[in-house]
Design a binder for these strands. Sequence first.
DNA 1: CATGAATGAGGGTTCATTCAT
DNA 2: GATGAATGAACCCTCATTCAT
Lengths: 206, 206, 206, 206
Amino acid sequence: MKQLSRKGREKQRHRSEILQVAEAVFSEKGFFKSTIREIARKAEFATATIYKFFKSKEDLYTKVIIEKADEFVSFVESEVSKETSIMMKVEKSIEAKVGFFLGNVSFVKIYFAQTRGAGFSIHMSMDKRIRKKYEGLLQFVAQLFRDGIKEGIFIKADPCDLALALDGLTNAFMFSFLESRKESKELLLKKIPLMKKIFFEQVRLK
Amino acid sequence: MKQLSRKGREKQRHRSEILQVAEAVFSEKGFFKSTIREIARKAEFATATIYKFFKSKEDLYTKVIIEKADEFVSFVESEVSKETSIMMKVEKSIEAKVGFFLGNVSFVKIYFAQTRGAGFSIHMSMDKRIRKKYEGLLQFVAQLFRDGIKEGIFIKADPCDLALALDGLTNAFMFSFLESRKESKELLLKKIPLMKKIFFEQVRLK
Amino acid sequence: MKQLSRKGREKQRHRSEILQVAEAVFSEKGFFKSTIREIARKAEFATATIYKFFKSKEDLYTKVIIEKADEFVSFVESEVSKETSIMMKVEKSIEAKVGFFLGNVSFVKIYFAQTRGAGFSIHMSMDKRIRKKYEGLLQFVAQLFRDGIKEGIFIKADPCDLALALDGLTNAFMFSFLESRKESKELLLKKIPLMKKIFFEQVRLK
Amino acid sequence: MKQLSRKGREKQRHRSEILQVAEAVFSEKGFFKSTIREIARKAEFATATIYKFFKSKEDLYTKVIIEKADEFVSFVESEVSKETSIMMKVEKSIEAKVGFFLGNVSFVKIYFAQTRGAGFSIHMSMDKRIRKKYEGLLQFVAQLFRDGIKEGIFIKADPCDLALALDGLTNAFMFSFLESRKESKELLLKKIPLMKKIFFEQVRLK
DNA sequence: CATGAATGAGGGTTCATTCAT
DNA sequence: GATGAATGAACCCTCATTCAT
């Protein structure tokens, strides 16, 4: 359908290579300390070539995030939809999130910087778009809670707050993982039951 | 002992004024978009004067965070120590955290940017110091959990993980508050019981 | 001899289309603010195609001017040659000049920019060629004055100076027209008698 | 009155030095081929220093022209006002113009480039200001003609057109001088009577 | 022959930092 | 001790031009 000429396909590959390198560089140094020159050099292109694909450094940064964020959201939603019971859906959302992040560590750093990093890094306009995506995912999970509350599975509380709380809980562990890279990925996966326990069962015994 | 001459006291006042202005500017624009010139102008000093007090922009930024972070940690610890029962201490730690943040919103933005913003904003060296402080607070709360577990109040789990989870949970709500500034401070305070409920009681009903 | 194949004719047409578009763009934005890309796009060719016809941006610019300038000089000379009396010839040179310019406003902007615009816009080498053409026309008119002086029609003065003066006089009105485009073309034509009056009769009454 | 501190005076001197160098460079190469770096180097300052005085390259260029143009206008008006008879005033305006230009050749190149160079060199906004100044001078001379016409000294014609014509006439000679720098300044001065003769007396003998 | 993707050199501009007063 | 003018290194971005297809 989207039948591209060989030229067109090659162009897409180049674009994709640039995005990949940009993600790595931005992830390592952050937006401001990264330079287009470095990205270009590491992608083995001339500086100006980057600008054929992205109209500014900011645009490149935005695209790096937006496109992966789309992938992320799609992944979580598709994984969740495989389950039938509400409880399983919510649990799956946690696993999918952790799973995706473990496979995209360098993206996650940027994503967190932008969604939870106080949000004054770059321009407002693009910030808005990212936040929107993030909000969308939150709303998606909130809907699961809403349904669950109706079914009497969950306590009566604002479903958005529940989604927010769950998000914060899982983020905390992922952050911790990001920082102490000595921990193996398995270790983070093994924390999943604990997250569920804390959130869905009781921490206090009596 | 700490008896300062008038000159000395005045110098301290100047230093403190600069820190205050710097906090406001850094909070509004972030580290990279803020300029020493702007901070100097707003503090009504010459550019070079800033360098009499802080040896670099980074140093200024670090001091802004470290000093307030110290205040923050002290505040939480002192509030917690007023309570006697472990459960009350933990609950107090939540309230103290939220309370301090509500009174220091502009600081919080910087603090989050640094501790949860993926940590590549600035140099490593100072990052370490901030993380250390943050770790310290986490350990402080973890100790409460450790004690609680011994007393049989909390489930048997890694106390550090519990502290991390609680931190993530409360952070999520504070973040949400930071972004949607239409919400009044009261609204955040009213969310505290929900945080406690999610963490200490069950979300799932059956 | 000049019998061109279809291919050859088509090539000429393409060349001519490019020149036309280039004239419009250069006229609107000047040499430096115009880009080859824009000219190519507006002429509906690829960038590189322009270079098949003109070896550089400067070359294109030069050709735009030189070729129209040739046309201009030919036009004036042929118009003048239709007259028999010297006085009529000189008057015709004014009318022809004004007439041509009114029909080629966008060219005139470039021409003036180059011949009267201080001449540092572009490279010296091509400047020389344009100036030469301009000089040629001036000399042509000067010859008319030289003849007229011999016949006792004009005052005894350096014929080159007279030609220069007449040129400056007419240019002034055309410039004024170029800038205030609200004026209709008729208005400029109506100024011709005044130019003649000033130049050939007296401004001062006594 | 405008008593400046030593620091202040030195700053003015620096500013003035930059303007002087900038005038020379812009005059030699034109706006686009000139670089801030070159101007800075020739003025023996660092690049950034230029930006302490002028907020952009365009601003510098504008200031170069505007300030000298002001000087020019003032000079002509003050010279003219020394005369009493209208005829003498008009003649003086020619002499003042030529005189000033001979003393400021490098400025004149820029001035002509901007006022007669088709006006697409730089930004509109500043162009407007220069044109306005130029218009002002034209109007000043036009007023002389208007008065002269009332007194019956000049033919009945639009005084603005007369001013325009006189301006064009004198410009032509100055241009010619600019281009063929072999001519000595005296030669241009000697042309003044011819300009007057052409304009105020008759070119045609019968 | 026509293309358009790729290039690399270069320009404008900013800012943390220093030094003479 | 405070100043602010001066610095120079560095970065983003543009564009004329070329080359592989």
